[in-house]
Amino acid sequence: MNAPFRQVAVVVHDLEAAVRHWWQTLGVGPWTAYTLAPPRLRDCVYRGERVDFSLRHALAWSGEMQFELVQPLSGPSIFADHLERHGEGLQHLGRYVEDHPAEVVAYLEKGFTPLQSARGFGAEGDGAFAYFAPPGGSGPVVELISAPKVRIEPDFSYPEH
């Protein structure tokens, strides 16, 4: 649980419009966008239930901080929940971890509530993510991220390089 937070994520309705806005208005980018969906995305769990969900997301670095924009596509998800309850905005903070299964256990032992998880989004079938609500319900959603060794081909980059 000592890995630094390296990611700030915002849920959006329209990924392309959000990427353009963040680049043109805030100077954050370049962005690389991906679609994560079954069958590549495996072992999808939402609030304790096995479900299929899909999303599009774009990633960009600004210094040491990675920004993620997430657009839910299908199925139940914490992203769709956020849009319904709060509209677009800050949704979670992410930590990249070396031993994803061990970190998940550590978070559960500390009283974090599992919200959503999946694995297999890397080009070699690796990569995993898990989202948690903090104990007592106060504070942001936390994502534990096991980055894939090789990413899948992106849907698009903005601006194009």
Rank of each mutant, 00 (worst) to 15 (best):
H13T: 10
D14P: 13
L15R: 12
L15F: 13
A17L: 08
A18H: 12
A18I: 05
R20W: 05
R20Q: 14
R20M: 04
H21D: 13
W22L: 11
W22A: 06
W23A: 15
T25A: 15
T25Y: 11
T25M: 13
G27T: 06
G27E: 08
G27P: 00
G27I: 08
G27V: 09
V28H: 00
G29T: 04
G29I: 09
W31K: 08
W31P: 06
T32L: 11
T32M: 12
Y34K: 07
P38S: 10
P38G: 13
P39Q: 11
P39V: 08
R40G: 08
R40Y: 01
L41S: 13
L41P: 15
L41D: 13
R42C: 02
D43I: 02
D43F: 02
C44P: 06
V45N: 04
V45D: 00
V45M: 01
G48C: 08
G48L: 08
E49S: 12
E49Q: 15
R50L: 05
R50V: 03
R50I: 01
V51R: 09
V51T: 08
D52W: 01
F53P: 07
S54M: 03
H57Q: 09
L59C: 02
W61E: 10
S62N: 03
E64I: 00
Q66R: 13
Q66M: 13
